[in-house]
Design a protein around this nucleic acid. Structure first.
Length: 202
DNA sequence: CCATAGATCGGCT
DNA sequence: GCCGATCTATGGC
């Protein structure tokens, strides 16, 4: 059924992989069952990007960003939330894609339980919410999404046009349209992409 | 619908 | 000390 993401699918410039990952599925196995959600929003953080955690070189926090393509990088945001990234380039490069939002497809009951009765639309709408719904945290940092049996990716096709827009919540390099999302999807986090940036909305 | 405050941790980008 | 790749609750229009 679902074809797993291969190493070569995830290897390459973050801007390209970020666009490719829209429409793919993030999957995780827990004692209570398998969770799946279709990725509808990503952001690229290439190595030369001043807004990237990897910009200043490796540290204990971002070390997994410098791993192989397909490595999972999970960091703590604002001391409370967790955010999940897919490493996309060769070892020691420091390039990743932030998973920002997804449309739940399997294990929705478990996601609802974990997310405390929020509307279904908000289960995975936002990077912190996505990590919470999947139960991912710093313990999962550095896991291999290509060979991993608890967290992995499956290839897919976007359900609509993929549009580019400026990234959310950063102050440096705001001019780079490195946020990719499914145009018009209700599962995409706000602010919604501005029309007419790099692609045309429906 | 929008704006704002507070939570709470690690890096200094 | 300050600020961030965030989210939630609350109060106002």
């Amino acid at each position: 059924m679902a074809a797993r993401a291969r190493r070569r699918d995830l290897a390459g410039p973050a801007t390209e992989v970020a666009r490719d990952l829209v429409g793919w599925t993030l999957a995780a196995r827990s004692p209570q069952g398998v969770l799946r959600a279709m990725i509808v929003e990503t952001e690229a953080y290439p190595p030369e990007d001043p807004a990237s955690h990897a910009f200043g070189g490796p540290t204990p926090r971002n070390g997994s960003m410098f791993g192989r393509p397909g490595t999972l990088y999970v960091y703590v945001s604002y001391g409370i939330h967790h955010c999940c990234n897919v490493v996309t380039d060769r070892i020691d490069v420091g390039s990743a894609v932030l998973l920002r939002a997804a449309e739940p497809t399997r294990g929705i009951a478990l996601m609802r339980a974990r997310r405390g009765g929020v509307p279904d639309r908000d289960l995975c709408r936002g990077p912190g919410r996505l990590a919470a719904a999947f139960g991912l945290d710093r313990r999962h940092d550095g896991e291999d999404l290509v060979l991993g049996r608890t967290v992995w990716l499956e290839r897919g096709t976007p359900p609509g046009r993929v549009v580019a827009s400026p990234r959310v919540g950063i102050r440096r390099a705001v001019d780079r349209p490195w946020r990719f999302s499914v145009a018009g999807s209700p599962w995409v986090s706000s602010p919604r992409p501005v029309r007419g940036r790099a692609s045309t909305p429906p």
